[in-house]
């Protein structure tokens, strides 16, 4: 993880304060195709400077939602405000990397980027300068004069990423940006997204790679069948879906656990997975410290996001409760 992701607490606190400003607000959005409802009363908000995950299984309504936000589709009901205005009024301040990707194949890379920047209202010379800057950042500067069709698929994808931000947008929407990229380029893209966040940009990210979402996103909304089924800060959601267990590593053999620990299972690496009953992880840690147990590490066990995703989509809530009974968390604290 880069330095950018390991910011000082004070800096993160300042950033959190800035994040209170709502950059994207979706309120009661509905989009129907005949009898099929693709988006069903969807509401969420994205704050300035955050990386927000728009997640969901295939066909959940993510792309339709994004297209409405980008003013490519019109909603049947509900309201979308981007940077405090209707989407059509702020086209020049939003950037978009669509899932369905493509560029003008017979044109030169730099020409395509400059044209797309101009369409967003960036003056030609400035667009050229920025395009060259970003091409250098993604390692494609020497390909600027080549035709798009001469580039490999991965290279084209990076050019497309550059196209989405060449006009210096305030809000960047990336639909499946990691699809088809090799691990090196995935890392490069992650770094760039963090860099954009550090520069005060807001990023909405739709991706199926849950490990990347976990690494990048501050908050998420999980959509299933057009509805928000999970919404809030990622840490809170993960805590909510915590399996009530801790990972414990000690310098001495473990004995004398309180009766509230239902089960202790020794792992291959010598640590223990303790399943908790009617005791919180904090109380357990206090109990261990009071008894001078030589604790080396103590982690609250969490479900990976992928597992939470599957559980929610398949209809299971936290700790086995049906998800249908779970209301989306009011993660924007409005």
């Amino acid at each position: 993880m880069s330095e950018l992701s390991e910011q000082a607490p004070a800096q993160r606190a300042k950033q959190r304060a800035e994040q209170r400003e709502v950059v994207l607000e979706v309120e009661g959005l509905v989009k129907r195709y005949d009898s099929f409802t693709a988006v069903d009363r969807l509401s969420f908000a994205v704050h300035r400077g955050e990386i927000f995950g728009l997640l969901g299984p295939n066909g959940a309504g993510k792309t339709t939602t994004i297209r409405i936000v980008m003013d490519i589709f019109k909603a049947d009901e509900g309201q979308v405000r981007v940077l405090g205005q209707p989407p059509e009024a702020v086209r020049s301040r939003t950037g978009y990397l669509p899932e369905e990707r493509g560029l003008y194949r017979d044109q030169k890379v730099l020409d395509v980027l400059v044209y797309l920047a101009e369409l967003k209202g960036t003056p030609r010379s400035e667009g050229r300068e920025r395009a060259m800057h970003w091409l250098e950042r993604v390692g494609l500067a020497e390909w600027a004069g080549k035709k798009v069709k001469d580039l490999s698929r991965g290279m084209q994808q990076k050019v497309q990423f550059v196209a989405s931000l060449v006009h210096d947008p305030d809000l960047l929407i990336l639909d499946e940006p990691f699809q088809g990229l090799d691990p090196v380029n995935v890392e490069l893209l992650k770094e760039l997204i963090w860099e954009l966040q550090a520069g005060g940009k807001t990023v909405v990210l739709s991706a199926h790679q849950m490990n990347l979402v976990e690494a990048l996103c501050d908050r998420i909304v999980l959509i299933n069948r057009g509805r928000a089924v999970l919404y809030g800060p990622l840490e809170e959601i993960k805590r909510e879906y915590s399996p009530r267990a801790v990972h414990l590593r000690t310098a001495a053999p473990l004995d004398g656990l309180p009766p509230h620990v239902v089960r202790a299972e020794e792992q291959e690496d010598g640590s223990y997975l303790l399943e908790l009953g009617d005791i919180s992880p904090q109380a357990l840690l206090r109990y261990l410290v009071e008894r001078d147990v030589p604790v080396i590490s103590f982690d609250v066990a969490q479900l990976p996001l992928e597992e939470i995703f599957i559980r929610v989509v398949q209809g299971e809530g936290p700790a086995g409760a049906p998800a249908a009974t779970q209301e989306p968390k009011g993660g924007d604290d409005r």
Binding site: S92, P98, L116, S164
Partner: peptide
Amino acid sequence: TEEKTSRVIEIVLSSVT
């Protein structure tokens, strides 16, 4: 048809009506 088949259209439509 070129913009449609090359999929570049979605980017363009996010910039202009």
